[in-house]
Each structure stands twice: as structure tokens, then as C-alpha cells.
């Protein structure tokens, strides 16, 4: 278990770094997919299999395909980024690291209680439990989000359509 966590964590971090530093967008996409898989693995370790499956389907199966699709459609495989001066890159990397460090430090110094609150319930991530919670407590948000989807769908179609609608 713990070995799995650390392996997944390290590979997640490495592949996330690869996303940022990859030359070609296509490789970025692929590394990101790998990151998502490691995160899905973490979900499985956290006993949220359903979420893991949905995560893979949504992110790897749909969103990243869309990214790849756009990259291929626009033929963006050649990296056309302006070369930034070194000091700027340094600033940015240092900035990211500083943020990371301050956040870690904040967590470290905070007095949050991180012990489990309730006795752990093994059925927490099952579909039945999730469904009950979703359709009882969050039904309104669920419906509203369907509206959001509809809006996004219409928006995407209108934007992507050539010329006048």
C-alpha cells in the first residue's frame, strides 16, 4: 500500500514536471494522461474506485482526447514558443517553488487535526452511497450543472462554427 502510494506520488510529480517542460504539446498531453493515471491510482488506493473509473473516463477518455484532437487539427506539434530570457525563467521557477514552500510550511505550522474524524466506513466510495448522497443532498447542484453543460455545449458549438450562425 504505502509503496504504491510513494511510487504513484513520485511518478505523478515527475510526469507533471514533464507536462510543463515537454517540448511538444503532444508529449505534454501524453505526460498529463500519465499524471491522471497516477492520480486515478491514488483514488483506487483511497478506496474510491468509482471515482477512479469516472476520472479515467472523463479526463483520459474525453478531455485529453479533445486536447489531442485540437492539437492535431491545428497541427500544433511544432513548438512555436518565444525563447524567454533565462532570468525570467528563473524568476518563474523560483516563484513556483516559493509558493510550494510557503504552502508546505503553512501546513506544517498549522494546528489542524489530521486524524480521521469518524471511524472509517468502507462503503464510502461505493456507487450506491455516492448516488444516494448525490441525489439527496446535491440534486439541485446536479440539475444546475446539467444546465451548465448545456450552456457549454451550445457555446462550444457556436464558437467553433465558422462564419455567421
Amino acid at each position: 500500500m504505502e509503496i504504491a502510494f510513494y511510487v504513484l506520488a513520485v511518478s505523478a510529480i515527475l510526469s507533471a514536471l514533464a507536462v510543463v517542460f515537454a517540448k511538444s504539446p503532444v508529449y505534454s498531453v501524453l505526460w498529463l494522461i500519465l499524471t491522471f493515471f497516477t492520480i486515478a491510482g491514488q483514488y483506487v488506493l483511497l478506496n474510491a474506485q468509482f471515482l477512479a473509473a469516472v476520472h479515467v473516463i472523463v479526463y483520459a477518455g474525453a478531455i485529453m482526447v479533445l486536447f489531442l484532437f485540437v492539437i492535431m487539427l491545428l497541427n500544433l506539434n511544432i513548438a512555436t514558443e518565444p525563447v524567454k530570457p533565462v532570468y525570467m525563467r528563473a524568476y518563474e521557477i523560483v516563484g513556483g517553488c516559493v509558493l510550494c514552500l510557503t504552502m508546505v510550511a503553512a501546513i506544517h505550522t498549522s494546528s489542524f487535526e489530521f486524524t480521521p474524524v469518524n471511524a472509517y466506513d468502507n462503503s464510502i466510495g461505493t456507487i450506491e452511497k455516492l448516488g444516494v448522497t448525490l441525489y439527496n443532498n446535491y440534486i439541485f447542484i446536479f440539475e444546475v450543472s446539467s444546465l451548465l453543460f448545456l450552456a457549454a455545449m451550445i457555446g462550444a458549438v457556436i464558437l467553433a462554427k465558422k462564419g455567421d450562425i
Partner: peptide, 17 residues
């Protein structure tokens, strides 16, 4: 798997890569 069907659709959706 208790999410067998979802697993299948997940794997199928990756197959496109």
C-alpha cells in the same frame, strides 16, 4: 470489479489513443 462496466468503458475510451 464492482465497477466492471465502467472499467470497460474506461479502457475502451483509452483505446483511441
Amino acid at each position: 470489479l464492482n465497477i466492471g462496466v465502467l472499467y470497460i468503458s474506461g479502457v475502451v475510451s483509452i483505446g483511441v489513443y
